[in-house]
Design a protein around this nucleic acid. Structure first.
Lengths: 339, 339
DNA sequence: CTGTTAGCGCGTTCAC
DNA sequence: GTGAACGCGCTAACAG
């Protein structure tokens, strides 16, 4: 491996001079600078970030930890984070926790060991608390995305989940639906809780009764086993005429299950959900959804993270900031008038 | 920051003993091992991967470089690579080149500087040659995914692009289509070339003439400007009754353009493409496509990469391997009988 | 303008 | 069983 010492020897200078050329620090004569540059080219020198980070005590490495890399909401968010990181001269690494608190813990340990300068996290849920405290204790700045964690102080970018639920329910009632069910993520996830609350409040405002049997909470994540949804559907009598899904994955699973029973959407049951199904949903717009500004989640979150890193060691720490992005209803074909 | 020296001092042993406990090497008495372990917990010690890698001359870090993180084909591939990497005890970092050779070059430089032990790369195209040679020169093993690069020797995982094109064209002719157009990625990308060849051969086998005006080559990437497609469509007289798209992004763009002109798919024009539109396409299956086994691309590629890394320094190097994954036609609703 | 010294956190080698 | 010395590649601090 070529090191600055190899360059130094070949160029007839000291390693320090080479280092200065690389980093554009100090004053170097044009002659020696040119010579060093030439030798670096000849020897195909590549700087060693690890050695550099070791002495500088900063890696210029940021980490984005999301819960589902196959979910278009998170990949679009990732693009936003990537662009913002690049703009500020940071490299960005991605991790995928799969909605698993355990996998997330492993990633946090890896992040700590990698000495990343900061982390952008979409936490798996309230049980992420210990990992986040771990980051805090080790003085690694982080920003939460899409989900809050009770007991954790930090900057955060959220969607307006409660308002989103209200809009979905209102849309359904405006089409005459009165038996509206909710299939949602685990209540250990803040956004799921808010969506549940918004649903409940919207029912009340529309003079509809809240019935526990019409609400089901399960993992926000894709499974091949649809039996859980099956038995929930069986338990609702009379069956709902419309279903609200807490995210895009659940929307897909519900629709698959309905199809499996020979029920058509929206002819037999209407379905709406949170988050779009990807950039490709435009060609055959089907699912009526609350679309969130995924790119902005990543871009703005990264912006706040970088500011926190730069502020570190500065004077008075700023208070935590919370950005709430709007929830826009996009009406498509998955809702029909109630019969 | 807590180091092994802090642990050592607190536990009344030498740093070396702590290191041995961490790595389970050498012989340590149970008593000291327990004591060291306890102190590590108390002080919340986290090992420093960078320092470790510096001395060991290996990072246990692998890199996956894809061209579009918002494309479901690549995210599914990424999941495969992630699972395989984890299985072998490697951490995996992701990079996103955006189909840009320049951005790709930046990433390769970063990878080199990071001292990753190996790279999985879906190259931006034939012009990726210099970067790949750079990796080779620095002795960083890599495996190519989805695309070959002339002049580069390496392991590679490909889809059966030629056969895929044939199946698409045959499907269209079986429905009576005779004016079949092709919109494809740049011919500097091997998979685009093969898809073009397959298209051409299939036309011939079906006794259809090849007409240059019915073929358009452009970037495989998403743009907001549809005018390029517009003018291509204008240039085809008589207009095609069916269009083959070289990947999922182009399929979406073509359909959007057609919709913009008030043309319906498949009623007015049939459209087929390569690669699925994500896990969500199942709920409202629209586009007829050649589906590739995206997860396997990543999983098998990673497997080969790890083997190469482990073989390094070994005896006789194995010959390069090429895995060709099958191309399966999935018939959905975007094709109608020709009038 | 340029070089010397020291140390970032850790593991290998060799001694005890 | 355990420890001391050294070096991985690099840069900050200080000399000159």
């Amino acid at each position: 491996m070529v090191t600055i010492y190899d360059i130094a020897a070949q160029a007839g200078v000291s390693a320090m001079t080479v280092s200065r050329v690389i980093n554009n620090t100090g004053k170097i004569s044009d002659k020696t600078r040119a010579k060093v540059r030439r030798v670096m080219e000849e020897l195909n020198y590549v700087p060693n970030h690890m050695a550099r980070s070791l002495v500088l005590q900063q890696s210029k490495l940021l980490f984005l930890l999301i819960t589902d890399i196959t979910n278009p909401f998170y990949t679009t968010l990732a693009r936003g984070a990537e662009d913002a990181a690049k703009k500020h001269g940071y490299r960005l690494l991605f991790g995928n926790s799969d909605e698993s608190v355990d996998k997330e813990k492993d990633y946090v340990d890896a992040i700590l060991a990698t000495r990343a300068d900061g982390v952008l996290v979409a936490p798996a849920g309230d049980l992420s608390l210990p990992h986040l405290e771990s980051l805090r204790m080790h003085n690694v700045p982080f920003v939460l995305l899409d989900r809050e964690v009770p007991g954790v102080g930090s900057d955060v970018v959220l969607g307006d989940s409660k308002e989103g639920s209200r809009k979905l329910v209102d849309h359904l009632t405006s089409r005459g639906h009165r038996r509206i069910a909710l299939i949602n993520g685990s209540p250990t996830i803040s956004s799921a809780r808010l969506r549940h609350e918004g649903y409940r409040e919207a029912l009340k405002l529309n003079d509809l009764a809240y019935d526990e049997r019409y609400v089901h909470e399960m993992a926000f994540q894709l499974r091949n086993d649809l039996s859980e949804i099956e038995s929930w559907l069986d338990g609702m009598t009379p069956p709902p005429t419309a279903i609200v899904a807490g995210n895009n994955v659940l929307a897909v699973e519900v629709i698959r299950t309905l199809h499996g029973r020979g029920l058509r959407v929206p002819d037999d049951v209407s379905v709406v959900g949170f988050d779009d199904l990807g950039p490709y949903s435009e060609i055959d717009p089907f699912l009526t959804v609350i679309a969130q500004q995924a790119y902005q989640f990543g871009y703005l979150g990264m912006q706040m993270l970088v500011e926190r890193i730069q502020e570190r060691g500065g004077e008075s720490p700023q208070p935590w900031r919370k950005i709430v992005l709007p929830a826009d209803l996009i009406v498509r074909r998955s809702v029909a008038d109630a019969k």
